[in-house]
Design a binder for these strands. Structure first.
Lengths: 301, 301
DNA sequence: CGCGGTAATTGTCTAGGACAAATTAAACAG
DNA sequence: CTGTTTAATTTGTCCTAGACAATTACCGCG
């Protein structure tokens, strides 16, 4: 039984490292060293793909590829993002409750999960629910997914159920045309929508008029949409998986497309380490959302 | 004001055409012909990006790039698939009402649209609403999108609002564990979810237990999910844009992965012209869904 | 300790060549 | 005329290898 190998396109998909980068690393660092098939094309064995994925993840955390590739496999431990912030008693209790929720997902008991989470929403109210339940829960799911304790389909189930819950909660809020008008979407290649929904929930609670366009809008289309809907604000979401490098240029480009009177907000874990600029407001936490909204209102009152 | 230009990476993002393809087309067909910046790198003007996106759209519909690039800009009209089935008086009236709904989208009046569509749902009841409103409406939006009368963002808005509506409607239905248990999802590369939601609505109305996993599940994961959830039926959706010839093989593969006791259903406009086989039940219309469900129940009673 | 300049690091772009997979066109048999 | 096999074409992806800009690290000096 010969273990399956991956061609370069598959590795790009699986690791988020572009074909160019994969070839360049091979040239420069001597890793990875894929085999070749009969056509002379690269065949990456699974273990190298795993290592690449690990390296990519550490890079997203701020490490440099040269160093990472040099180090042997004890990075595994060196990298493990030891999140050991001292947490309060209350936070700890909250975390245990969240773990219980995730346990239901892992038991594939969708009904019980839905009931529990609904209850939590009713108890906390939408704002705290988004900030204290959905946000950390989603982060946790991402972590579990990374270290392999969550199957793909379990993550899908969580995402799908949570999307429903948030959309449903949003739809019960009073609508009506109130300022500002916010257009919510994401750029192509970025298909994570949960962050957008969380922001939408918070904004809608504050009485903003939200126009949800889903994910993956080409930049020129975002410009057209902003004009057609006369949006005051265009809010984009970038997940942690989104290539950091591209974000700056992307915002700059969009800034040129949008009218000067339209504000541009960029949020999500992807923008956490992006350099500030005049092109867009960077929103790194959910709290920032409300603060930025307040600032906007102050400026336009 | 110098209009903004796009580098090759940005064009890849916005059009979905890979850098390799963009360069190859330039070499082979002489289009696009981007300018060059001081570093000799390609700068695509906005109008060429638009044309590329249009070409990509038509390619997804089955046209070939060589032809498309050769044709001047009258492809727009020339290639819109004209359909002209004779229709009954009643259907005609219904269609006019649907057109009114779509007009609201085109006026970018999300609020008015939502109100109108909600009203329609209340009037028709979920089943007829899905069959007589959402299904034809979605088809119509697809047609408008194909011939360019709908902007991308207008289509996105329609899709997003409709998804919300359906999910909300589904969530109000009584849940509880009732047979059969249906796992709903789609294969990788297939990201259209509206069809799945329509089917879910119909199945949930009939008292089936639906497990929605969203779109783009790898085949092996579908197998794992089916086992973990002990699904009686796995229902897949293929949109019209999905490459027809892959479907047969996919179903065959999945059939081998799934336990023999698990039924496999494949639906959506993509399967309309797929050859029947023993691998899966093909569901070509929404009515078929209910018929196939009834047949399943008969067989398992 | 901060600041500016230099050096190393790193990603992306460019160019053309090659080839396999998919599709169409052509040839042929029934 | 129709179906089927074979040849030609279209088309996308991969390959190598070089160049360069942008970022980051380093180091000496005030």
């Amino acid at each position: 039984m010969n273990t399956p190998t991956f061609n370069i396109a598959a590795v790009e998909r699986d690791t988020g490292l572009s074909k160019d980068v994969l070839r360049m690393w091979e040239r420069r660092y001597g890793f990875p060293v894929p085999g070749r098939d009969t056509n002379g094309e690269r065949c990456y064995p699974a273990d190298q793909v795993d290592r690449l994925r690990l390296i990519k993840r550490l890079m997203d955390l701020g490490h440099r590829p040269g160093k990472l590739i040099a180090t042997p496999q004890e990075e595994l431990t060196a990298l493990s993002p030891r999140r050991s912030k001292p947490e309060t008693q209350e936070a700890s209790e909250n975390r245990d409750e969240l773990e219980e929720l995730l346990a239901l997902i892992k038991q594939h008991d969708a009904a019980a999960y839905q009931q529990a989470i609904q209850q939590r929403l009713a108890r906390q109210g939408l704002q705290r629910f988004v900030q204290d339940t959905i946000a950390p829960l989603t982060r946790r799911v991402g972590e579990y997914w990374e270290d392999g304790s969550f199957e793909v389909f379990e993550e899908h189930l969580y995402t799908e159920l949570t999307k429903r819950l948030l959309r449903q909660a949003i739809s019960t809020l009073p609508g009506g045309p109130r300022a500002p008008r916010v257009l919510l979407t994401s750029v192509p290649e970025e298909l994570h929508v949960l962050g957008l929904l969380m922001v939408e929930a918070l904004l809608a609670l504050e009485g903003a008029e939200c126009i949800p366009l889903g994910t993956q809008m080409p930049l020129l289309e975002i410009g057209r949409a902003a004009q057609a809907h006369q949006a005051d604000i265009v809010a984009l979401s970038f997940s942690g998986a989104f290539p950091q490098r591209q974000i700056g240029g992307l915002l700059q480009q969009l800034r040129m497309i949008l009218p000067a009177t339209t504000a541009l907000w960029a949020g999500g874990s992807g923008v956490a380490r992006v350099a500030r600029s005049d092109d867009a407001e960077l929103i790194t936490t959910l709290d920032d959302t409300l603060a930025t909204l307040a600032a906007w209102r102050l400026q336009h009152s």
